[in-house]
């Protein structure tokens, strides 16, 4: 099967792949399973309300791996709340993802939201959020 150049690039040399190492609290968000076609684990370290570090691990097709790589690249350095605002349709358009594979991006979206939820549970109030 042939993939668009952007997918090839991120499949061959994925960014932010692997476990997140180093000191400090690591937030985790996981979604999917092999039975669902993809399994994604997101790890992030939030610093002053922003995504200081982010990494992914994925079991899935090349589209899934490329989507994880591209999405985490975009999220790194941004505000933490953006973890919950991934737009699967926009990412699908950017990657040239076939419509029947959109479910893979929903799994990535769930993993990112679960990561954000993990952070929320550790914060009395979200940084930047009014009391």
């Amino acid at each position: 099967m042939r993939y668009p150049p952007l997918v090839e690039q991120h499949f061959e040399r994925p960014c932010n792949a692997g476990p997140l190492a180093g000191p400090g609290q690591v937030l985790r968000g996981e979604a999917g399973s092999p039975a669902e076609g993809a399994h994604v684990l997101i790890e992030a370290r939030i610093e002053a309300g922003r995504v200081g570090e982010i990494a992914f691990r994925a079991w899935g097709c090349p589209w899934t791996i490329a989507a994880c790589s591209l999405a985490t690249t975009r999220l790194r350095g941004g505000e933490a709340a953006a973890l919950g605002r991934l737009d699967p349709a926009a990412l699908a358009g950017e990657l040239g993802l076939p419509a029947e594979r959109l479910g893979r991006l929903l799994i990535l979206q769930d993993a990112l939201r679960n990561c954000l939820a993990d952070w929320d549970t550790t914060q009395p109030t979200r940084v930047g959020q009014a009391d």
């Binding site: 499949f11 079991w59 479910g103």
Partner: peptide, 27 residues
């Protein structure tokens, strides 16, 4: 074990082989 079939096939694209995975369609 531990690998998705379509990614495996793509990682092996230097080889013309077939996958046991019928992964072209979501269903």
């Amino acid at each position: 074990a531990g690998i998705e079939g379509e990614s495996l096939l793509h990682a092996l694209r230097e080889l013309a082989v077939s996958s046991g995975a019928a992964c072209a369609a979501e269903s």
